[in-house]
Write a protein that binds this DNA or RNA. Sequence first.
DNA 1: CCTAACCTTGAAGCTAACTTCAAGGTCAAG
DNA 2: CTTGACCTTGAAGTTAGCTTCAAGGTTAGG
Lengths: 169, 169
Amino acid sequence: MKIGELAQQSGLTPSRIRFYERIGLLKTVARRPNGYRTYPQQAVMILGLITTAQRAGFTLDEIRTLLPSDLTHWDHAALMDALTRKIVDIEALQVRLTQSRAHLLRLIEDIQERPDDMDCAANAHRVLTNMLADHPEALDVTSGDIRLLDTKDRRQSVSPGRRKKTASR
Amino acid sequence: MKIGELAQQSGLTPSRIRFYERIGLLKTVARRPNGYRTYPQQAVMILGLITTAQRAGFTLDEIRTLLPSDLTHWDHAALMDALTRKIVDIEALQVRLTQSRAHLLRLIEDIQERPDDMDCAANAHRVLTNMLADHPEALDVTSGDIRLLDTKDRRQSVSPGRRKKTASR
DNA sequence: CCTAACCTTGAAGCTAACTTCAAGGTCAAG
DNA sequence: CTTGACCTTGAAGTTAGCTTCAAGGTTAGG
């Protein structure tokens, strides 16, 4: 399989696949006499695995250290450990999000609750003071960070026909 | 107030404050005859507001468009709109996180549920197949993205004494 | 008067995860 | 034998939000 075909089957761009190879996430594959890369069918699965892990919040660095060269020989302990820690990270982030959401809701309410006898300027001041008072200190969230994919899908648009020139612009 | 003092009071670094000015998030302030910036007391509040908004998931760009030059004159409608949309974004992210967490938990269980008569290689294959089958298609989360601060606190360490030289390395 | 801690600027560097570009080689069809 | 869709490489660009650096001016204390 040439890189273009792998790209189609995996939903990634060729440049991304080459990039993964460059950073050592994919091992270097065999080449045809003309220099073209040839991929085994398994490569589709590996790429699927990588994007799945990314969606779960793993960085490429983390994925690299976890991915074995042979898909049938995983470092069981390290993997479980990483999965567990990632869950903890996610939970920490969920807590933060819940707090942020609550904070924003409170803020909205606070803004709308303007006393009838108060003008906008004074209300602004009231709300601001409330809000800043609300934060006793930098909340000390000391845990690993989570990286999520942007919500705009990173995957190559699942070719609706044939790409002519990677689409204009 | 000089920039160093503002930095202390706000918990930000001077470079960060200058950066905010450069990108138009802070309006250019008055200068002393020697060229030093002088800040009004209010600047502390504005910076507090900015970091609070950041913690809530707003980008500096968003904050810039929302922040009025006069803190007592907000664009009420735009503000409420932005707050509401941000809450929606947070909720979308929470959904994703919940899915990711569930996915990871299922994966852990799946790995541990290896049938006694199956060797590791076969189990690996079973788990992989399950996992990749698990994703019917790229889940189409079409919403704005949320940027959260890294969990490692961006704030300047709340000066435990006197910084000599911004601390070594 | 010296020194250290401030302040100034513009430019460059950092991280992550890619993409884009430039410049060129390969290959199948017509 | 020409066209155009592929493939190759290395280098540079992108985004966000800063920091760091280099090179220099200012100021308060002793």
